[in-house]
Amino acid sequence: MGALPNLYGTGADGVRNYEVLLADGRVVDANAHENPDLYRALKGGGTNFGIVTRFDLETHPLTSVQYTIDLYSPDDFTAINGATAAVQMAMEDDPKIGLFTNFNDGVVAVGMFYAGHAGASSPSASAFAPFHGLHPRKTGTALPTTTGTLLSLAEAMGHAQDVPGKRAISSVTTRVSHDLYDRVYQCWTQLRATLPVGCVLHYTIQPMGTAGVQAGRNRGGNIMGLEAAPQCWWVLTGEWSRDAGVDVDAAAHRAVRTMSEMVEALARTGGVFLDFQCMNFAGAGQKVLASYGAENVRRMRAVADKYHPEGVWQVLQFGGFLLRDSV
């Protein structure tokens, strides 16, 4: 999922061809014309079908991107969540908008991205008006407003950790809902209070719009079963010291699982839950492939049986999001 997912869809959607080593030793191409069933299954299906030795990506004309990351006080969570939902809905009319909202200890970081040059009178000025207006109080800027490229954005957001720590993640997908966002925040503040010292629990709201899902369909489709609707791919993250003991490890993992379960329960109660789980953001114990829907699981199993009837990849791989664990 890139910074501007509504323009071109997911990274998997941009693959034009896979070169794949099959279980019987053959090397084949998988694309829209050769082995198209394998091609579709690889676009989101993980390591269940072969060893990808090469992939060719679709490219696009280089475009400028205006980006900034502003910081807000969590005390303004209701206004921040309202602005997040408003910008998400604006994406439905303008796929050049990109956004993330991250709630962390003592600060909310909001990343705002817009494809193309964006001056004071540009579309981006109105797109992010809910944040620039009289709603939440900005407390600082982590990344000043810059006009660059996706590469310069990635470089600006990248940071080295002097002391690598431990990390656990989980993912949930929901529809856009200001009410849900507020309820999640309230549950998060209660859960954080139970964590050991040095353990941080934070979460990110990452929007995907209808245009992003449709962009994938326009590029031949994928196996992920995405619903063409404005939605949020939640990333729930726990981070703690590498030197922490097993008791802290257990508490951190438990907090991430609990957070994931709470978001899902709140979304189900509010009628805004979606089954999809993004593999990149999912925890090891989540049933990612099953979240693609029963029909797509059937398709993946058919492809796996066709290209390695002995189930080599299910037997020889220690773990991962495998079809053997999809039920």
Rank of each mutant, 00 (worst) to 15 (best):
M279W: 12
L323H: 05
A229K: 05
S124Y: 07
M157R: 13
S122V: 10
I169E: 04
T68D: 08
G212D: 01
M112F: 01
A90V: 02
Q161A: 12
D249I: 05
G158T: 15
G14P: 01
K287L: 12
L42H: 06
C232Q: 11
G311V: 11
P196M: 14
E261W: 07
I205C: 05
V213C: 03
E19W: 12
A154P: 04
Q88A: 12
P230W: 02
A115V: 07
G82N: 08
L134D: 14
G45T: 02
A85S: 15
L191S: 09
A265P: 04
A79E: 14
M262Q: 15
A284G: 12
T59L: 11
S241A: 15
H33L: 15
F113R: 04
M300I: 09
D13M: 03
A85M: 11
L289S: 02
L316W: 09
Q88T: 10
D70M: 05
L236P: 04
D94H: 10
G50A: 06
A90D: 02
G311A: 09
A90I: 03
W313E: 01
G221H: 01
S260D: 11
Y203D: 01
V27K: 13
A120V: 14
T84W: 01
K287Y: 09
Y203G: 03
M224I: 07
T84S: 13
D70W: 02
F113Q: 05
A3K: 05
G140L: 02
T204D: 04
W313P: 01
R175D: 04
H33C: 07
L180K: 04
G119M: 05
F100M: 04
Y72P: 03
L38M: 11
R298N: 11
G212I: 00
I80K: 03
G106F: 12
A244N: 04
T59C: 05
G119L: 07
G82W: 00
R175K: 10
L180D: 02
T237M: 14
L195C: 02
N31D: 15
K96H: 13
I69V: 15
A228T: 00
H117V: 14
G209W: 01
G198F: 12
V248P: 04
V163C: 01
G311Y: 10
G46C: 09
Q66K: 11
R175L: 05
L151I: 12
D75F: 06
D56H: 11
A229Y: 03
L153R: 02
S126G: 13
N6A: 12
P230K: 00
G209V: 00
N296K: 02
T146R: 10
N35E: 08
T53Y: 09
R192V: 15
N6H: 13
G311H: 09
G106V: 08
V184S: 03
V108G: 00
A129T: 06
T68F: 06
F276P: 00
V248D: 09
E239F: 00
E227P: 00
G270I: 13
R257D: 15
L180M: 10
R217I: 08
A294P: 14
G285S: 12
P74L: 06
E155M: 06
Q314L: 08
V272K: 06
W234I: 06
P95H: 11
R219E: 08
L38D: 07
M259G: 02
Y8L: 09
E261T: 12
T204A: 14
A156T: 13
V108C: 04
G221R: 03
A193Q: 14
E34W: 00
I223E: 03
P144C: 09
A125K: 06
L226R: 00
H159N: 10
T237F: 06
A127R: 02
